[in-house]
């Protein structure tokens, strides 16, 4: 959709790109590295996301996941990634005590974990190509590696769900070689988070949950589960997870954080 050169003052060259895929837009910001290698890696990462969409989309009748759900194919007949993602989904379900689920109306639906997994993988692929800094934003869920420039960490604005266009906080990746920031909420698409216990839209006092951790696959799943739990249970649960910090915003415009989040606020 967009390919653009930027000129960060004094920093390494930047390669930016926004790709419409998986029902959203994925924004890439890659700093430094050998330009040819980075460009090739970006093209591969983008192709990888489209492939994920083809294999995993529950909106496509002919996707492997749709066919698996209908029983037309077995798990063994699907790409190896399908088993990998479903196993991660099962792990998230176990660690969230069932608040995260990869089933919807009785059908296999790994949608909740696919995007985080795919965006993290795309970012990792770019980092492996020799880039100094990588930021990949999959529709509001971000995986970062390295740094955007000398003496400067990645800085992530957390959109304020109650003040469109404004920021609720800024998270800095200072000191972290890898960092993910994922947000679940109702602000953009209305109530789309389902309580796996009732099968209905989650009844929650939250309007947004932002989870900060090393890997997007988990940060994204924890944000989804925490949102469905509601603020009180979510905060206790998030505190219990290692390497995870979180920011919760309630419908009453109250902000609650895990104990260690302050160290990440920029």
């Amino acid at each position: 959709m967009v390919g653009q050169v930027t000129d960060p003052a004094g920093g390494p060259s930047a390669l930016r790109h926004a790709e419409e895929v998986m029902g959203t837009v994925v924004s890439f910001d890659v700093r430094g590295g050998e330009p040819g290698a980075v460009r090739t890696a970006l093209e591969e990462a983008v192709a990888g996301l489209h492939r994920v969409d083809e294999v995993f989309s529950t909106y496509r009748e002919d996707s492997q996941v749709s066919r698996l759900g209908r029983g037309d194919v077995t798990l063994e007949q699907c790409d190896q990634e399908v088993a990998e993602v479903l196993a991660s989904g099962a792990e998230a379900e176990r660690l969230s005590d069932g608040w995260f689920s990869t089933r919807y109306e009785g059908r296999i639906d790994p949608t909740g974990i696919v995007k985080g997994w795919a965006v993290e993988r795309a970012a990792r692929h770019l980092a492996a190509s020799g880039a100094d800094g990588v930021s990949v934003n999959g529709g509001g869920d971000v995986q970062m590696y390295g740094v955007p420039g000398p003496h400067r960490p990645w800085r992530v604005g957390i959109a304020d769900p109650l003040r469109p266009g404004g920021l609720a906080a800024v998270v800095s990746a200072a000191g972290a070689a890898e960092l993910a920031v994922a947000t679940s909420g109702t602000a953009e698409r209305g109530a789309h988070i389902v309580d796996p216990r009732t099968g209905r839209s989650a009844v929650t006092d939250l309007v947004a949950v932002t989870v900060v951790g090393p890997r997007l696959i988990w940060a994204d799943a924890w944000a989804t589960a925490a949102f469905a739990m509601g603020s009180r249970q979510a905060l206790d649960w998030l505190e219990s997870l290692p390497d995870v910090e979180a920011l919760l915003i309630t419908a009453g415009d109250e902000v609650r954080c895990t104990g260690g989040l302050a160290a990440r606020l920029g």
Binding site: E20, S27, D141, R155, V170, T183, S184, A187
Partner: peptide
């Protein structure tokens, strides 16, 4: 705020057009 990227509730392709990202 000097930010590089924005995290927020997942936007659609249309929603992206109005996003800070």
């Amino acid at each position: 705020a000097d930010i590089d990227v924005v995290s927020g509730a997942t936007y659609t392709s249309q929603g992206y057009q109005q996003s800070l990202q």
